[in-house]
Design a protein around this nucleic acid. Structure first.
Length: 481
RNA sequence: GGUCCCAUCGUCUAGUGGUUAGGACGCUGGCCUCUCACGCCGGAAGCCGGGGUUCAACUCCCCGUGGGACUACCA
């Protein structure tokens, strides 16, 4: 590694929602930049005019921001190496294409889709790696003129020289590919739009990228890109290819495996720090068995050596476990912030903050995702009060109803309020009813909460208050007599 | 089919020639005498197979086997 500060990039194409696999790549790059005090650049690869969408781009930027992954240069931020949309860099690619044409390192290819398909099938049937065999490589100037005259559009192919292409991958070690097995690949399509491998090389060079950290699915592209670096006379960056995130069947994580996008996890009530923590942990380790880390700790301990070489299955159970852990540890204020959309959705946006905090504090141990808050908010809402089947069953006999009546009686004759209620009233109950333990508490729980399980009972006394308790006990009695 | 990559409990991992193979999720037994949850204490569960190298292999090498990625005028 040199003494200059590293520059890394995340270069997604906005053709869909941000996938957790891509988010992890973005995270690795961002962590690398943070760890070494370098720069993290966001570049939008929007050369596929058909699949690219501005909506996806907006969502992508929103998702990255939600995760806390900020870019130093890129869309909306600017920077010395812009523009940061490939669609705005077309003239740059044109210039470099012309250099390659002049140097005779590329040539126009007039083959049609059908011709290419026929060749591909033929090679496969002969058990060979499908690749372009160079049909248009040595066309005479005359033939080219004729094909142009026919109106055949030309794509530009790079003439791949034979010989080994080697490089040292920062995660995988020495890599070696054979040029003669590759086949001439297209660098500029017949519509004039550059192909991925060409645009990437020019952009990474022009943007002074020092380390290309990306998924293993790009490993074989690296050979092609290295060829282009050499042809263009550019010094290549360092490469690091991390393993992919897998679904339960060990294939690359995709839609058929269920939720896979950052957006979906946010909507399911996963905290951003949790997703970051989990993604950083997946297929890696923080050392000393530490699994729960703050962003700063993750940045501090980040290292490419730490990244595993084999794919890791996305374990939703562990993600949920981590989420519940954060929900229990997070401060009430920030938790409320993230909880807001879910509170609104449950119809409790109007709830005063103090009450909300008390409820949250009472139920956070029971919650795994933010989306579950609605059902717990309802338990504390008198207008949503109703007895579950289990509660009704408990309240079905006279002995348990006696407990409820006794408490109601005490409630009607006490001066105690709020937090005092539980402490002063409950101790009187065993004597009054002759019951204790489960026989005493379950009827109370059933009558007060309408449920057979839930948070500690004393919480209900202090949060609900006297009148609400009286209301609930009366309703419970009415419903069971 | 071809090229390339990978291989420790079900899952995520620690381990770099000598360890009772450690941790976490999940599963499971118990405790915490209202429930659920939380928490605490236990348990079951692993080095893909075969050859080498070595006094000694989970660890190094080779061959199998298994899994994965790529194989487009998508990125």
């Amino acid at each position: 590694m040199t003494n200059i500060l590293p520059r890394v990039r995340f270069a997604p194409s906005p053709t869909g929602e941000l996938h957790v696999g891509n988010a992890r790549t973005a995270l690795f790059n961002w962590l690398f930049a943070k760890h070494y005090h370098g720069s993290f650049i966001l570049r939008i690869e929007d050369t596929d005019q058909v699949r690219t969408s501005k909506v996806f781009e907006a969502n992508l930027r929103q998702d990255l921001a939600w995760l806390g992954i900020e870019w130093d240069e890129g869309p909306g931020k600017g920077g010395p190496c812009g523009p940061y949309h490939q669609s705005e860099r077309l003239s740059l690619y044109r210039t470099h294409l012309e250099r390659l044409i002049a140097a005779e390192l590329v040539y126009p290819c007039y083959c049609t889709d059908e011709e290419l398909e026929t060749e591909r099938l033929s090679l496969i049937s002969r058990k060979m790696m499908p690749r372009y065999m160079g049909k248009c490589r040595n066309l005479t100037a005359e033939t080219r003129r004729r094909l142009e005259a026919e109106g055949r559009p030309a794509a530009y192919r790079f003439h791949v020289p034979p010989g080994a292409i080697t490089f040292h991958d920062l995660i995988r070690g020495p890599m070696r590919f054979e040029g003669s097995a590759l086949g001439d690949f297209i660098i500029v399509r017949s519509n004039g739009i550059p192909a991925y491998n060409f645009a990437v090389v020019i952009d990474d060079h022009l943007m002074k990228i020092t380390h290309v950290i990306r998924g293993e699915d790009h490993l074989s592209n690296t050979a092609l890109q290295l060829l282009l670096y050499r042809a263009l006379g550019f010094a290549p960056p360092q490469f690091a290819h991390h393993a992919l995130i897998l679904g339960w069947d060990r294939s690359k994580l995709s839609k058929r495996h269920g939720s896979t996008t950052v957006r979906e996890f946010r909507e399911q009530g996963i905290l951003p720090q949790v997703l970051i923590n989990y993604l950083a942990l997946l297929g890696a380790s923080f050392g000393e068995g530490k699994e729960v880390c703050t962003i700063d700790e993750i940045i501090e301990s980040f290292s490419l050596n730490r990244a595993g070489k084999s794919g890791a299955i996305f374990d939703k159970d562990k993600l949920l476990w981590l989420n519940s852990l954060y929900i229990r540890k997070e401060s009430l204020t920030t938790l409320t912030g993230y909880m807001q959309p879910f509170i609104k959705e449950a119809g409790y946006a109007h709830l005063e903050e103090a009450r909300l905090h008390r409820i949250l504090d009472a139920v956070r141990d029971n919650i795994t995702s933010l989306a579950e808050i609605g059902t717990y908010l309802r338990i504390f809402d008198d207008s949503a009060y109703e007895l579950s089947a289990g509660a009704l069953q408990i309240l079905a006999d006279d002995e348990t109803r006696k407990v409820v009546l006794s408490l109601l009686d005490l409630l009607n004759n006490t001066d105690a309020e709020g937090d005092e209620l539980y402490r002063t009233l409950i101790p009187l109950l065993p004597e009054k009813t002759g019951l204790r333990g489960k026989k005493l508490f379950m009827p109370l729980r059933a009558a007060i909460t309408g449920q057979t399980k839930g948070p500690e009972l004393d919480r209900f006394f202090s949060i609900l208050g006297k009148s609400s308790l009286q209301y609930r006990l009366r309703k419970a009695i009415a419903a069971t007599t």
